[in-house]
Design a protein around this nucleic acid. Structure first.
Lengths: 232, 232
DNA sequence: AGGATGGTTCGATTGCCACCGAACTATTGA
DNA sequence: TCAATAGTTCGGTGGCAATCGAACCATCCT
């Protein structure tokens, strides 16, 4: 019976019109602020706040404070999957997700850049998504990642210096860093830096002078496809 | 807005404890009478009747009158899929300890069960993994499989009615269905049902009465090993 | 510092809906 | 024909939860 209650609780969380429209917006895979979500749901900020904290409690959403904003995103791809399957029987198709078109302006910096010493932008999040999807890294707590056993092997295979990253003093090993253009987390910390280093060392990417912009080379594009199963 | 409302309406239908337990019972893929459903939900017949007609209106259930009984079943495999995916995130909510306890309580269910009309659990994912590993099926898009040429031959060899599955009206041919206990995809859709049917027809597996649990027979275990190269 | 912005908490109101008792229809069986 | 069983419809009740105004906290900006 516990499982039944859990089922109805999750479904009930999605069963309120205001919460459903928030979830719909979040189906673009990005993180959105509380006020943004309140606006699209057509409710006041107070009400939205209540809904959001309930959905965080229910493990539907994950929240992250950044400055005075608070960003909410879907807690996992499982949640997205469930919403999609509900939309299927509701007779509506998943949103076209052509948000990408809006970001076409100013492509270079959004496409790939360094964030301190690790990769950010579309490439950074694509790499992170790929690692997550393959089960190489898993979210740990609110702002860290765990490198799994298969992930360790994968890193060794492509030449990421994991032992070196572990040795990096008191520095955090693998952190979730919110990407400001993609509004989703990418991997940072010592491991993120080691991954970026691999990209530069193997000629997959090169830093442009006097800029945070990073150019993905042709071999980098191939490596993304073959090693990460990601297309950008 | 329509699309959001539709989403919340469907979710709200599943979001009531009484309706959720009815849906859970119906996940065995069979039809049940109104009083049977009322009993498992722990409510009176009148209340159940209201719930049931609402779910029929909402295209979650289909009803068929037979004598003075009225049988209800899930309206489509899409509904079953949506429920499964909700169970997936509902399962992650529970801490690992209680999850393990639930599995300990019913290890058979985790081992092999029907998900609407196809195989799920360890056996379901093992079969799917084996088909993938042998190149008999390949992921197509995010939620479908392609049956390859060798796969077609293999199905013919072991007696899976592929032409029949292809003929199955507007039903999806081969879908990726996320397994809530294994947290990996297994094969569903018309082809998944045809494969399950083969298991039952050839005596490799048998349904346990009044339950979604499926027992793998000895010959089924041998078949898994010889035909699929899988051990469970 | 102090104002502006983003977000949350609290309390009170309101409307919806799950529930049951009672009465009703339909089918079966004697 | 009558009695029993399965199911539905109707009306009234009760509880829960979505909502907003108001006050409050945190952060940013000048």
């Amino acid at each position: 019976m516990t499982t039944v209650n859990a089922l109805s609780e999750v479904a009930a969380l999605m069963g309120d019109p205001a919460r459903a429209s928030m979830l719909s917006l979040l189906m673009d895979g990005r993180a959105h602020t509380a006020s943004e979500l309140a606006l699209t749901a057509g409710i006041t900020a107070q009400t939205a706040s209540g809904h959001l904290s309930r959905m965080v409690d229910g493990n539907l959403l994950a929240a992250r404070a950044q400055g005075r904003n608070r960003f909410y995103r879907l807690a996992s791809s499982d949640v997205a999957h469930a919403i999609e399957s509900l939309m299927t029987i509701a007779g509506t198709r998943a949103p076209p997700a052509s948000m990408a078109a809006a970001w076409r302006r100013d492509p270079d910096l959004r496409f790939c850049r360094t964030c301190y010493d690790h990769l950010a932008g579309q490439v950074g999040t694509a790499v992170t998504d790929a690692l997550t999807r393959s089960g190489y890294i898993e979210p740990k707590g609110v702002r860290d990642w765990t490198l799994t056993e298969p992930g360790e092997l994968f890193c060794k295979r492509i030449g990421v210096d994991v032992p070196g990253a572990r040795r990096a003093g008191s520095r955090h090993f693998a952190r979730q860093c919110l990407d400001w253009s993609e509004r989703r987390p990418h991997i940072s910390g010592a491991l993120g830096a080691a991954i970026a280093d691999t990209f530069f060392r193997r000629g997959w990417a090169e830093k442009l002078r006097r800029s945070r912009t990073v150019r993905l080379t042709d071999s980098g594009r191939r490596a993304l496809s073959s090693h990460f199963g990601a297309a950008v």
